[in-house]
Write a protein that binds this DNA or RNA. Structure first.
Lengths: 339, 339
DNA sequence: CTTGGCACTCGGGAACACAGAGTGCCAGAT
DNA sequence: ATCTGGCACTCTGTGTTCCCGAGTGCCAAG
């Protein structure tokens, strides 16, 4: 259906358009890339490509521009992820080393990615549900209030103030803390609801109201934080590239956690480390017609904890961007595994 | 120097320009506001105002536009902070009630403020140094690592993993925890360095290396977090108002914690609750020529913990914006005091 | 199937004119 | 002394026209 030369023409169109931001014509194309054919031949190929929907012309008698479908083919079959230069790898390492806690890792990562790709970077905080409990702490604040602190193996700390139904002395708190830890230490967060289900029955009757209160808050924490925090950086990079769809739409999407979440997409269970590319109209939010998202999962020790990626104009350098996203994801995974 | 009518003219110019975004001429001005004078008189006044630097014309034979100096005079002497409508107060309450922790309060606040003012809102996390220690927790992770958790009265939690110089069993940890809490509980964070100074000498010699390690991390936490986190929201609101200075500059500034910090400014010690307004060139960052910042301190129980504010084009509705900032600051302070 | 030639199309920039809003200034009125 | 109406002048922004050139589609020949 599309012979090799037509594919080469498509590739050339994408590459030229990405670098010049101007519709590319048959003559310039035949010259710049050594296709060894005349412009007229290229024109014929272009006509076919256009008929099939891979390219389009903004106006009659203008050059051609890739369509979303064209970019899709380019990404799938005509390009290879471009590895980072040595200098860039260096930059990643020096940038990420020295992060003191999870917050710091995420913040540094998102900035790094934005700087590297010169686009908007998006990083999701590692999901709780896949991490395990490292420690549960109950801290007495007043005689009726305790603070619940949940520490996970990813270094994440969740805290919540609990209003107790009755006055309770420290010794009982200490005992409850021991019980909780005995029950939960080292367990996956997703297993917590099951593990604590029969806990009220295993404590003295007098403690049951207190335990119930604490457990309800604990479970609530797990559920509420399930929709995870997402941060972005590099919005300034949007200012340069003029967006077809309003810049406003893009900025709005970036501040909506829910939208961002859907944009980053789900990690496919079979190939979790695969790069996901969503091009223009492929993505699930109408305000982002003119933008593409390159994302991938990351996480320590083989298990995927969350996703990160970049967002930019459809007209982006996919090979380079994909290379950067992949590399950063790997480094962050390493860092997380080590800490 | 400037009689009442000239001031009225300046006020009218500011108000009209803010609402129309177009240079305002003498005729329209004399009609819309009932100044009871002819356009010619207005023109004479305008000439004086221009000579003094309060207004300027973009081109010869165009209307007048307020200068930074003009806005300054308007803010200082010609306008009053506009109280919020009942509906807006309602909105604030319903929006802030139900925040579960400090993170949540800050996130909700910044969004609320952005929505209310239709501008970019900026909120600084409450500063550690003015809060007090509610609890210090040492959580054993492995036999060589403990996690230090510091809980403040503002609900803030700081955690740090500590690599110990020697293996240490739980009982000793528990003891150290008790010692630390006895020493620090309820104290102001700024007093912590003094309070722990002689702590190593008050424990058995064998514990000193461990204590020293822990204390150094503790102090480090206090110092490092002194430059506080700042978040913003509402960047999408920048898209509408076309900025004279590049949009890019503004977005860049927003992502630089340090710059933001300086923009929000210091709380003046004598009148901490006062609204600070920085207009255009008055602010300390050259990239923000065309933007103004309206900020104020906030905090629980009379003591100022941090600052919040909004950032928008110089051409903003100062009375309304100032009203919103002030109101939000008050509500947040209430919420923080209650929790 | 490829190539060169050719007529056609359309966008974008330059040149131009023009209306309208606004100003500055002056002389007369209050 | 101050305000007012009148008047000439100066711009910007907009609409119009025109033309160049890049690019196309098609056709006939290689």
């Amino acid at each position: 259906m599309l012979d090799d030369r037509k594919l080469a023409v498509l590739r050339a169109i994408v590459e030229d358009y990405v670098s010049t931001n101007e519709p590319v014509g048959s003559k310039a194309l035949a010259e710049r890339h050594n296709l060894n054919v005349s412009p007229a031949t290229v024109r014929n190929d272009m006509a076919v490509l256009e008929e099939q929907g891979y390219i389009a012309q903004p106006h009659t008698s203008a050059g051609r521009v890739p369509t979303d479908k064209g970019y899709r083919l380019f990404v799938d079959r005509l390009s290879q992820v471009k590895p980072l230069s040595v200098a860039e790898r260096r930059a990643i390492e020096t940038f990420l080393v020295g992060a003191v806690d999870l917050d710091d890792v995420v913040t540094r990562t998102v900035r790094l990615l934005a700087q590297l790709t010169r686009q908007v970077a998006v990083v999701q905080y590692p999901t709780l549900t896949r991490s395990t409990v490292r420690h549960v702490e109950l801290v007495p604040l007043t005689d009726r209030r305790v603070m619940l602190v949940l520490i996970t193996n990813t270094g994440r700390v969740e805290q919540r103030v609990i209003e107790l139904p009755e006055v309770i002395e420290e010794a009982r708190i200490a005992h409850l803390r021991a019980v909780l830890n005995a029950c939960l230490d080292g367990c996956g967060l997703s297993a917590v609801p099951d593990l604590v289900a029969d806990l009220p029955e295993r404590v003295p009757a007098e403690d049951r109201p207190v335990v119930a209160t604490i457990l309800s808050v604990l479970l609530e924490t797990l559920v509420e934080r399930h929709d995870e925090k997402i941060v972005f950086a590099g919005a300034a990079n949007l200012a340069g590239a003029d967006f077809s769809s309003g810049l406003r739409d893009v900025l709005e999407a970036l501040e909506e956690q829910v939208v961002l979440m859907r944009l980053l997409g789900e990690t496919s269970p079979d190939t979790p480390a695969a790069l996901t590319v969503r091009i223009g109209s492929e993505n699930p939010y109408s305000g982002l017609r003119g933008t593409s998202i390159v994302a991938t999962g990351y996480g320590s020790g083989g298990q995927q904890l969350a996703r990160l990626g970049v967002l930019g104009p459809t007209r982006m350098d996919y090979p380079v961007t994909m290379g950067a996203v992949r590399a950063v994801a790997r480094y962050v995974s390493q860092i997380l595994a080590a800490s």
